[in-house]
């Protein structure tokens, strides 16, 4: 009796990785999923925070995919290791701060390490030749193979027939004839295959799964690095870039102003780490202050924060400034007129 071969599949939560893993399961391979958390994954973050998104599904799509496939999923925190990928990408960035090729090499390399440590035989990804401009160009797929160290143990079932044979195919662990020859940006073949498998619901193909492909988010990250004069970050930094309005009236500090109740509630969790401004006399946002502020800066920031409260047109607004926990000050201030809030302050 032959040994059942084992594959570790990179599961992003999107359609392609779901289909790639399914093709392997149908060939009798034992498949387990692996999902890497960089801190920049879109998933349900914003929906989880914002009250107006309360009714949107908050499920983690990688977990959902694994459940559809009936496989185990290992979610691995790579937040710290990923910093080097983002800060020093050997192959550069895409249109924004997305180091897609380096990211793919890194993740396949981590999957290779996991495969070796856990006695698995090969790696599966949902890559398709020509589907993405940076990481899935035909001339770049071999770069991932080589630089990840996965070599011929990396199988891309959706486009395998367009690529050189891999070890699992040569050894007869999997049948090349049952693999696919998808290429290009069209999603129709994947959608047809999903229908053939009976997958009626799956994460929408468009939109991406990484905040680093988003221009607004990338701008905020660059602003953070510039203000700190250091290309570094902690997980709280990158999560806060997804929340609230960010205004930087001076290079040495910025305001993070909640936009609604859900964000207010979420930002409250950070009051121990940041100075804050709360509007006491009217309904209004919670504002966190990132940086070192003088007395004059606090006053200026409070006038900006009040501008985003229901007291925006009032003669005066009472605010509570908390510099450190237990060090609170109540002040009456005049909200800043909208004409004085400069466009270039918005990060």
């Amino acid at each position: 009796m032959s040994t059942q071969r084992k594959a570790v599949a990179l599961i992003s939560g999107g359609l392609d990785s779901l289909l790639a893993a399914k093709l392997m399961l149908d060939q009798g391979i034992h498949v387990e999923g692996i999902n890497f958390y960089t801190g920049f994954c879109v998933e349900g973050h914003t929906h989880a925070i914002r009250k107006q998104d309360k009714d949107k599904p908050k499920r983690n799509n990688a977990l959902w995919s694994a459940e559809q496939l009936g496989i185990k999923l290992h979610i691995i925190d790579i937040i710290d290791e990923y910093k080097d990928v983002l800060i020093n990408p050997k192959h550069g960035y895409g249109a924004n701060m997305n180091p897609c090729l380096d990211c793919k090499i890194f993740m396949v390399g981590k999957a290779r390490q996991w495969m070796e440590e856990n006695g698995f035989d090969f790696i599966v990804t949902g890559e398709v030749v020509g589907q993405r401009p940076m990481s899935q160009r035909k001339n770049l797929l071999p770069v991932v193979v080589r630089e990840s160290g996965a070599l011929d143990r990396l199988v891309r079932p959706l486009c395998a027939k367009n690529l050189a044979t891999t070890l699992p195919e040569r050894e007869g662990w999997i049948d090349r004839d049952k693999l696919k020859d998808f290429s290009g940006r069209s999603r129709k073949p994947q959608m047809a295959l999903a229908a053939a498998f009976g997958f009626e619901e799956y994460a929408t193909p468009a939109g991406g799964c990484c905040f680093l492909t988003d221009k607004n988010y990338s701008d905020k990250l660059l602003d953070l690095w510039q203000a700190r004069n250091s290309k570094d970050y902690e997980i709280d930094d990158i999560i806060l870039l997804k929340v609230g309005r960010h205004l930087r009236p001076q290079p040495h500090y910025k305001l993070i102003i909640s936009r609604e109740d859900g964000e207010n509630k979420f930002l409250k969790g950070y009051k121990k780490q940041f100075a804050s401004i709360e509007i006491e006399s009217h309904n209004g946002p919670l504002t966190l202050l990132d940086g070192e502020l003088s007395d004059e800066d606090f006053l200026f920031a409070a006038r900006i924060a009040a501008r985003f409260s229901q007291g925006r047109d009032a003669d005066k607004v009472t605010v509570k400034i908390t510099r450190n926990i237990g060090e609170e000050q109540m002040l009456d201030i005049v909200p800043m007129p909208s004409s004085e809030i400069k466009k270039e302050w918005y990060v």
Binding site: E43, G44, H47, A48, P57, K58, R59, N60, L63, W64, A66, E67, I71, K72, L73, I75
Partner: peptide
């Protein structure tokens, strides 16, 4: 995170 209400049980089922 209210998302945990669906995600942790999903992880448990898997």
């Amino acid at each position: 995170d209210p998302g945990a209400l669906s995600d942790i049980p999903a992880w448990c089922r898997i």
